[in-house]
Nucleic acid binder design. Structure first.
Lengths: 228, 228
DNA sequence: TTTTTGATTATGTACTACAAATGAAAATTT
DNA sequence: AAATTTTCATTTGTAGTACATAATCAAAAA
């Protein structure tokens, strides 16, 4: 074997802190023992002793799991395994100011991908009532000035996600909004697609799924044109 | 004012622990001061004193931010703001055993949405070399037994994400795989679509973007048919 | 039987002490 | 004078003790 790809043979030394390792160990432990939400965990002192660390370090690790919503603790009752909110943790690091430009661009594209792929779910689950509400949003925007138009833009596309009947997707979209706004705000000349929101509503009313896909593609075309 | 919507008047008591509040305060602080990655933070003692909490509590909060990759610390150098890996944190809570069924279903659908929306990026960025590699994967699967076929299935769709040229998207897919596998494994009778992987490759070679979208729709049809 | 009280117990917070690492300054050598 | 080594100071990392707080359970009182 030659000297190529040393990293395969020599894993980088990761000077993990105790809290890091304890966090990992607790994860493994919870998994191995196949704890289910609601199950009670040993108390802090027992865990600390078993792991051979101070209660201090243990609590730093527990604090992380608690933040993620993996565990919940009550004063005398002890700790129980809980269901983490998978998106809640995501939200904490989603700040346009911290994320690097390359990832920002990725997320921008991710939103486009989601929006393009939404059609299939939409045509499975859309209701007349949904379309009415969507139309109301689209109608409102004709006589709005520019500042309110952005809000309306968000409302329209947000309603589309809502109509998908997928709560996780909807929440995901809400979280990505600031990122999306940020990227759009950086764009030099915001152009508009040939297909308007009202056009999309009309398609949803009477058109086929393929019609809608083509319509959405035309609606988002200015964004896609910026990609390479 | 009537007694309706009490929650507007009486905000629910959130018995946050000190660490929770300190975490929040630190977040606000970092944001307000518009710290940038690489900037140095005050030392623990100063922060603890300013916040009026013990160093212990402060460290529990810092431990969380450290886990998220928002800060990094070195022994004498102090703490610096860092760039969190937005997906890394996500990964930590993505365990099919912990996530409730409703969210599992949502994530399953999310994958379908992504896959359907991928076409536009693909047709912007696909290269001949990509298609060759994809074809190699598709060709391999004809004479594989069932256990390896799943791996190949993953390889094929993974390659598609890779061809999108969006690293975040690709990583996202990898993270969602276990969830997807889990949901699929629960399915009673895994049926196959009329359009095979080889068909998709052929479309990519000579067909139009619309052809590919229709092909992918047919390929995933069994999954979509299960939705309501 | 119901209510009250109190003991018990696990988590939450504070404080102190020291180890380890590391960057800077001082001392030494070349 | 420049380079190297040594020493020192500083900041995070870990341990341990002590006490506050809240929730549970059981015993005692009404």
């Amino acid at each position: 074997m030659a000297t190529t790809d040393l990293s395969k043979d020599l894993a980088p030394i990761v000077s993990n802190t105790m809290a890091d390792m304890v966090e990992l160990r607790l994860r493994e432990y919870l998994k191995r023992k196949s704890f289910r939400p609601g199950d009670a965990l040993p108390k802090e002192l027992e865990l600390a002793e078993a792991l051979g660390v101070s209660r201090n370090v243990l609590r730093e690790a527990l604090s992380r799991l608690r933040m993620l919503g993996m565990i919940e603790t009550k004063k005398k009752r002890g700790m129980v395994l809980a269901r983490p909110d998978i998106l809640g943790t995501f939200e904490r690091v989603l700040d346009p100011l911290i994320i690097d430009n390359s990832t920002l661009q990725d997320i921008f594209e991710l939103r486009l991908v989601l929006e393009m792929g939404l059609a299939d779910l939409l045509y499975i689950r859309k209701t007349d009532r949904d379309i009415q509400e969507l139309e109301a949003i689209a109608k409102k925007e004709v006589n709005l000035d520019n500042s309110f138009r952005i809000k309306n833009e968000i409302a329209f596309h947000g309603k589309l996600y809502e109509m998908s009947g997928n709560d996780t997707l909807k929440r995901f979209q809400i979280m990505l909004l600031p990122i999306f706004d940020y990227v759009v705000s950086v764009e030099p000349n915001p152009t508009r697609g040939d297909v308007t929101h009202m056009d999309l509503v009309d398609i949803l009313k009477t058109g086929s799924k393929d019609d809608f896909k083509k319509g959405m593609e035309a609606h988002l075309k200015p964004h896609f044109d910026r990609l390479r």
